[in-house]
């Protein structure tokens, strides 16, 4: 049974609602300040991604968020209703591709591929110049443990993010 559960219509404005709730719940759970910042950003990225995916394939379906607080961990699960694996860029080792690889910033690329996409179409999302999967790559850099899996019945993607917040557990990363 999750500590707090939330279901919201796939609208950008509600991503902020989810962020505020996650912030409030993490504060109440007493997670360290550094982890609270990571939680705030990671839940935003996961929800923004889920909203994009739902709007593309299943605009009437809600995004589902569950926040679970235990003495040692804080876990957030975000589930979309799109095609399984949409906006997930798996790396060769089965893990997630890092942001700098997605952006082609290593090795020193003067003009990464996404860079030359100079469409001046103002109706297009500016983030369109960014590869899909950037949100997850950012999550990978923020969260202690990320697990991406298929949703129930093969519909959608489940993004589960866990922070080790307990004193006994490994200390969370302070900086990268």
């Amino acid at each position: 049974m999750p500590t707090v559960e939330l279901r919201f219509a796939a609208l950008n404005g509600h991503v902020r609602t989810a962020r505020m709730i996650a912030t409030a719940v993490s504060r109440r759970a007493g997670v360290p300040a550094g982890a609270a910042d990571e939680i705030k950003l990671a839940v935003t990225e996961a929800c923004a991604r889920a909203v994009r995916v739902n709007r593309r394939h299943s605009p009437d379906s809600p995004v589902h968020v569950a926040l679970v607080d235990t003495p040692d961990t804080f876990t957030i699960t975000v589930v979309d209703c799109g095609r399984a694996g949409d906006e997930v860029a798996p790396g060769p080792d089965g893990g997630l591709v890092t942001a700098s690889t997605l952006l082609d910033l290593e090795p020193e690329a003067a003009d990464p591929p996404w860079w030359s996409d100079t469409s001046d179409d103002d109706s297009a999302e500016d983030s369109a110049g960014f590869p899909p999967g950037l949100g997850l790559a950012l999550i990978e850099g923020l969260v202690d443990e990320v697990e991406i899996s298929r949703g129930p019945d093969g519909v959608g993607t489940v993004v589960a993010m866990t922070w080790h917040t307990g004193v006994e557990a490994a200390p969370y990363k302070t900086a990268r």
Binding site: L41, T44, W115, D126, S127, A128, F130, L134, L138
Partner: peptide, 20 residues
């Protein structure tokens, strides 16, 4: 107070525009 990947995208878009 808060910046996400959408914000990064906008900044990168701005950089592309001025570089042009």
């Amino acid at each position: 107070e808060f910046l996400d990947s959408t914000g990064l995208g906008v900044l990168v878009g701005g950089l592309k525009r001025v570089r042009a």
